[in-house]
Computed example of a mutant assay.
Amino acid sequence: MNIELAVAVAFLALALMIVLGAIKIVPQGREYTVERFGRYTRTLKPGITFLTPFVEGVGRRINMMEQVLEVPRQEVITKDNVMVQVDGIVFIQVMDAAAAAYRVDNLHNAIAQLAMTNLRTVVGSMELDEVLSQRDHINSRLLDVIDQATGPWGVKLARIEIKDLQPPPDITDAMARQMKAERERRAVITEADGEKQAAVTRAEGLKQAAILQAEGRREAAYRDAEARERAAQAEAKATELVSNAIAAGDVNAINYFVAQKYVEAFAKLAESPQQRTVIVPADMASLVGAISGVSELLKSAPATVAGPPPSAPRRSPAPRTGPAVPPSEV
């Protein structure tokens, strides 16, 4: 009984092992290849699958998710003979599990070596300035070349990027000095442009000021001419009125006219800055007579407007009396 029980337990354990070996569960993002007596037959997708015991087995377990591979750092000589150190990263995704499993050995190493050789070829065909300024162009060229090479392996290159690019220290120092000189040159040009614009603006301001001043002088001259014309018209009107008064026989008009001119001449003589001494005649009777004539003219102005009296006798000027007084110095 014990022997039979042990044999039954052994057969049960073997059957359980066979059943568990025939059931395969493929996780998401993975694919398994199935081999029958060492030959590839099919690819298992994510999920549960039953295999034929002792006949079929899992060959390769392939990662179908996008993967990142690092391209090792290497020294590359550019077209202008400058040694630079370059490394990068490659993003790949397996599209065909069978091709990736059976058409290339060590897929990751193969892609890394392929990226290194093509990176050396592309960078070596360009000058240092182009390498530093055209990374996108380098990435696109590498992507086209490596993608075509890995197509038969069932791999799709999503993108490739240059991670770091280091020129020699002396080249880096020279580039820093060049950049500094370029910045200083731009600063000088910008400052010169600013000074130029400021000079142009100042010149425009002076031009506008000169134009406005000329227009002001022209307007002032026009106003002065108009004022002189008005003064001349007023003078002519006054002369005409005095002439009419003289023609009408009014002696006070003559006295007013003479007194006005006398006073104006005397005022101009007194206002002269070089004249410190003014000579005035001692006989002031004529001036007093002229002023009295002005007062009489002002008194008779309303009567003149209304009309002179019909029988107003004319008065002759009073004769001068008294001895002549010599002129005195004021």
Rank of each mutant, 00 (worst) to 15 (best):
Q178I: 01
K268C: 03
P327G: 08
E31T: 00
A236H: 10
L16K: 04
Q233S: 13
P53Y: 03
P327L: 08
A234W: 13
M64D: 08
R217M: 12
I23K: 10
E226C: 05
K207L: 13
S133F: 00
L143A: 00
G88R: 09
S243P: 05
V84N: 07
Y102F: 08
Q274P: 02
V251C: 00
A318C: 04
P152S: 12
V71Y: 01
Q85H: 09
A112M: 09
M126S: 03
N106T: 06
A192C: 05
V34F: 00
E191P: 02
P53Q: 04
D105N: 15
V68M: 05
I18Y: 08
R36P: 00
P273K: 09
V305T: 14
N2S: 13
P72E: 01
V330P: 00
L128S: 10
I246K: 13
I211A: 15
Q260H: 02
I111E: 03
V7P: 10
D173S: 08
Y32V: 00
A176P: 02
I138Q: 06
L5D: 10
N2A: 12
I18K: 07
D173V: 05
A112N: 15
Y40I: 08
W153K: 12
A15N: 07
Q74Y: 03
K261R: 12
T304R: 12
D283H: 09
A220K: 15
S133G: 05
D283R: 15
A203G: 10
L132M: 10
E229N: 06
V122R: 13
A245K: 12
E226S: 04
P309W: 06
I246A: 11
F91C: 05
A181L: 07
G124Y: 05
T150C: 13
V145K: 12
L14R: 01
L119V: 10
Q113M: 08
Y222G: 04
D193G: 00
S140L: 04
A306V: 14
L16H: 04
A110R: 11
V288L: 11
R320T: 10
A101C: 09
Y256Q: 06
A214G: 14
K299Y: 02
R218H: 06
R42D: 10
S300Y: 06
F266M: 15
Y40E: 09
E66G: 02
A227C: 10
A181M: 09
S140Y: 03
E56Q: 00
T190I: 13
E329P: 00
E264L: 15
F54N: 06
F257N: 03
D80G: 07
I138E: 05
G124K: 04
P72G: 02
I62H: 01
T121K: 14
P308R: 11
T33L: 03
A203D: 13
V90F: 01
N2C: 07
A221Q: 08
E204I: 01
P327H: 05
P309V: 02
V188N: 14
V251R: 11
S328M: 08
D173C: 03
I111V: 05
S316T: 09
L128C: 05
V122I: 15
I160R: 07
I18W: 09
G57A: 11
F91L: 11
A110Q: 13
S125K: 14
E204V: 01
N118D: 12
V288K: 14
V76F: 03
S300V: 05
E35M: 02
V258T: 04
D87P: 06
A232L: 14
N2P: 10
